[in-house]
Design a binder for these strands. Structure first.
Length: 476
RNA sequence: GCCGGGAUAGCCUAGAGGCGAGGCGAGGGACUGCAGAUCCCUUCCACCCGGGUUCAAAUCCCGGUCCCGGCUCCA
């Protein structure tokens, strides 16, 4: 059984088969860099990060491209408001975006093409469309003639007639038909501009993605993703441009993420109800945010609530506790010479849950379902540890390796697995634990508690167990 | 109007014809000098309503109700 993905184009789950064996080429629409990145962006980019990580985990080489729209009406407008140069403004927010993504442990794309560095490629693309008769020059720009592209509407299922009737499309001065969209906008006074066969101007919004994805991924590739709000018109227009240009299928699988909602409304810049990633990161560990996102399937809308975040935080804490329990137990675990019932039971539980995890992820990246399996392993191993005086190394290792896989795919616990226990500090902590043990024996609890409290301040938590005192780093 | 997604125990989320779903929260217990962690038990076996199909429906079909999103810049 392979991976199945839900394809917006066909509105069903399909067997995932990349065009080239072993390689997945994917493109995810990046942001227009004119403001801070908010939680809605985080939702989408974390979702695609996990999809990408999972494909890599399953052995595919993934080539991932994400664009930056760094010139656009909104950037210009914003720059006029702040008095900043549009280029500098875009530059600034682009950098913030990269910082935010890094903080959220989203793996960087392989290429981040920017519009302003691909103007020549875009012009060539528009020229080609013009030569093929799909584009025409109007008074204020070059337009794509939508009704010439027969498959228009195949992704979003909008019909041309409805579009025109609904009058949702603006009839521009230079347009032949109201549904046509701009490929190239001729410059108005004071706007940033580049020279072209149609005079000075700048690219329209949709053309950049067609141009840059094709440049880096080829005329056909596997996955194109983005938020659901991009399905129409952005992605529909991209298809029109790209397929009109090449005459064959462009993208095989279209993946779209559900919105982040806040009080029943979409979180967006235009509604002004957004929470920036920076604000969130001041209050929560990035892994809490990741887990919050992963608790829900990527296609479903996700409600932002304080309780939801707290929930994620508790869950994450629990998983870290389990990891610590395993790690501590492994230090004195025994090699197995024989298994008892407890071992068979624990082994089976871990094995089943592991299967469950992969089954869930194979099924259109169902992270919410996969998370159940993670808790099942957590429960199984904790139960095993309480039932057995001398845990077997082989059992603990199975659980440990499972959590490493989870870490790899979900992008959590990564630092935990990377960090060695604190070197020379470890010896000092052990010394303090011994001193405290002596104090406790003498029933000097005041001083014993003070040692515990002070270590806690330093991020070291002591826990007294029947097997003695153990220490862990405070994680969440 | 057109397209799409929903309604699952106190809460959050999966599932998709038949095995008491996972987590959170709450209460109780074990272990503890206390704290923490963990385990065990309980939270009266949950699926919007009305029909139908079926030996069997939360799941399929028909008809409702309510909620939400897109159709305009948006991740």
């Amino acid at each position: 059984m392979g991976i199945k993905v839900y394809n917006t184009l066909t509105r069903q789950k399909e067997e995932f088969k990349p065009l080239r064996d072993g390689e997945v080429r994917m493109y995810v629409c990046g942001p227009t860099v004119y403001d801070y990145t908010h939680l809605g962006h985080a939702r989408t980019y974390i979702a695609f990060d996990v999809i990408r990580r999972y494909l890599e985990h399953r052995g595919y080489t993934v080539l991932m491209v994400m664009n930056f729209t760094d010139i656009d009406d909104k950037i210009i407008r914003r720059a006029n408001e702040t008095g900043e140069d549009p280029k500098e403004l875009a530059e600034r927010f682009l950098r913030y975006f990269l910082e935010d993504m890094a903080a959220l442990k989203v793996k960087p794309a392989d290429v981040y093409p920017r519009v302003t560095e691909h103007i020549g490629d875009i012009i060539d693309f528009v020229k080609k469309l013009q030569e093929k008769g799909y584009a025409y020059e109007g008074s204020d720009g070059v337009y794509f003639e939508v009704r010439k592209f027969r498959d228009y509407g195949k992704l979003s299922k909008v019909k041309l007639e409805d579009l025109v009737k609904g009058a949702r499309v603006e009839p521009g001065e230079g347009k032949k038909n109201p549904e046509d969209f701009a490929l190239w906008k001729k410059a108005k006074p004071g706007e940033p501009k580049w020279s072209s066969p149609w005079g000075e101007g700048r690219p329209g919004w949709h053309i950049e993605c067609s141009t840059m994805s094709t440049k880096y991924l080829g005329e056909s590739f596997d996955i194109h993703g983005g938020g659901s709000d991009l399905i129409f018109p952005h992605h529909e227009n991209e298809i029109a441009q790209s397929e009109a240009c090449t005459g064959h299928e462009w993208v095989h699988y279209w993946l779209h993420t559900g919105f982040l909602m806040v009080n029943g409304e979409k979180m967006s810049k235009s509604l002004g109800n957004f929470i920036t990633i920076r604000e969130m990161l001041k209050r929560y560990n990035p892994e809490v945010i990741r887990l919050f996102v992963l608790q829900r399937h990527y296609r479903s809308p996700l409600d932002y609530t304080e309780e939801g975040i707290e929930h994620a935080k508790n869950n994450l804490e629990r998983l870290y506790n389990t990891l610590e329990n395993i790690r501590v137990a492994m230090e004195k675990a025994e090699i197995s010479f024989r298994w008892g019932n407890e071992e068979f039971e624990a082994y089976k539980a871990v094995r089943n849950a592991r299967e469950e995890f992969y089954r869930a992820m194979d099924d259109d990246f169902n992270t919410a379902e996969a998370l159940k399996a993670v808790f099942e392993v957590s429960n199984a191993v904790n139960r095993y540890l309480t039932r057995v005086k001398a845990p077997k190394e082989s059992i603990l290792r199975k659980a440990w390796e499972f959590f490493r896989a989870v870490s790899d795919v979900f992008g959590i616990f990564e630092d935990y697995f990377r960090e060695k226990k604190a070197g020379e500090a470890e010896a000092l902590i052990k010394l303090l634990i011994e001193v405290r043990a002596q104090l406790r024996k003498e029933r000097n609890f005041a001083l014993a508690d003070r040692i515990r409290a002070e270590l806690r301040q330093l991020g070291i938590q002591l826990e007294d167990t029947p097997q003695g005192t153990v220490w862990k780093k405070v994680k969440v």
